[in-house]
Computed example of a mutant assay.
Amino acid sequence: MLEKAKTAVSYGDEPGLRFVLVLDGHGGCRTMNMSEACSWKPGDGIVWLHFERDHPATAEWINTNGGFDPLVAEALLAEDSRPRVEPVGDGLLIILRGVCAAPPEEAEKNSDEIDLVPLHIWVDEHRLVTLRDSGHYITALRDIRRALDNGKGPRQAGELLALVSDKLVRDLEPVLDDMDEEVDELDELIFKGEASEVRLRLKLLRRRAVQLRRYLAPQRDALNRIEHDDAPWLKERDKLRFREVIDKLMRFIEYLDAIRDRTGILHDDLSTVIGERIARNSNRLAALAALLLPPSVVAGLFGMNVGGIPGVNDTWAFLVIVVLVVVISAGTLWILKRIDWL
């Protein structure tokens, strides 16, 4: 019977609805369609509904069939995405941020398109409702769904919420590792003097670090508030998991601060390298001008259209002038090297 229920509905077949899963309390689940979800009752088991937040069908279900307080429904559908937690009755209104990657069929074409995107959550003792914008793909939810399909998922609402939070934070680690590797690469390029392509990449990396921290800090506060909430469906084991997730997130924030500090140091190093390059080029131009000054003076003097210029009627005069210019230029070059100008 369970296998038949699993194959009855495919993910994303109904407008605005990604999936509906009913936990069986033993780590597994069965799927439902929208009409079945509308007739769901708490006694049927803990249900997890996942929607596309910006789809009209989702707004209709949230406002008419979800049974939410109007303020909760408005918050679930709002575009406000700053991480926060608001207790409402026996439930929690939660907004978190998770890593968004390209869908599997586009992963190779958009392997660099990784960012933090909002996940709106309502959770109480009997159900978990999650909403993310269409076009976003959160791998954390996919992994939990697969675990449930394999009978190794969460068994109750608090455990499911803790697992969602854990997976969201877990997926941050590869992003930070990639950023750290890019910092090392930029450091190597600056060390080798290849600063031409570093400036833009360093600017984008530093901006990304600031943007990530902007969301991770309030997300840490939100998870901390969940841990200390006195909801009866949050078990001690769930709170322990939240504590571990918060510790991991704090380490990631410190890691992100270190990346931001390193980019600041690299920016200073880059400015120093560029300044030294400009000074070196200026010295070369000044040295070239100094070398060309004696020939220019001699050419100017002998090029004046006035009487009395020596050597006008002598055939050897030009050779003498050429030798004189070469000697003066060689002397100028020797002086510039003696004073370390070249």
Rank of each mutant, 00 (worst) to 15 (best):
H126C: 12
D115W: 02
E113T: 10
G67D: 07
Y11D: 15
I95T: 14
R127F: 08
V85E: 07
I62V: 15
A57Y: 14
E36C: 07
A102S: 12
S81L: 07
G27M: 03
E125C: 00
Y11M: 10
C38M: 13
L17N: 12
I62C: 08
N63P: 03
T64P: 02
I46W: 05
E105P: 01
P118T: 03
T64M: 04
D143L: 10
M34E: 15
D13H: 14
P15F: 02
I144L: 14
R145L: 05
H26Y: 07
V72R: 05
V117D: 07
M32Y: 09
A101R: 14
T64N: 10
G89P: 04
P42Y: 05
D80N: 10
C100P: 00
E86C: 00
E106I: 01
G66H: 03
L49I: 14
L93W: 09
W48S: 05
D115E: 13
E52G: 09
N33R: 13
L92S: 02
E74H: 12
F51V: 03
G135Q: 03
V88F: 14
G91Y: 01
W122A: 02
L116V: 05
P56K: 07
E113I: 04
L77M: 03
V72D: 00
R145Q: 15
G25A: 15
T139D: 12
D54Q: 08
D124C: 03
E113H: 09
W122G: 03
R30A: 15
A101D: 01
E105R: 12
L93N: 01
G12C: 11
L49F: 10
N110D: 09
K109W: 09
P87N: 06
A57Q: 11
D13I: 01
R127Q: 10
A107I: 02
F51T: 07
L128H: 00
G67R: 06
E108I: 01
E60G: 06
D124P: 06
W40S: 10
S81G: 06
E36Y: 08
N110F: 13
L93S: 05
D44C: 10
G43K: 10
P42M: 12
A102N: 05
P42D: 11
L92R: 03
H26T: 15
K41F: 09
D90M: 04
G43M: 07
V99G: 05
V88C: 11
A37L: 13
M34Y: 00
P103A: 09
I94R: 07
I62Q: 06
L49P: 04
V47T: 07
E74A: 14
L49N: 09
P104M: 03
R142M: 01
E74S: 13
I114Y: 02
H50T: 04
H55A: 15
G25L: 08
L77G: 14
C38Q: 12
L131M: 11
L49D: 03
V20A: 15
L71W: 03
H126A: 09
R127A: 07
W122K: 03
R30E: 13
V20P: 11
D13S: 15
D13R: 12
L141K: 01
P15A: 08
G135K: 05
W61D: 01
T31W: 05
N33Q: 11
W48N: 11
R142L: 12
D80L: 09
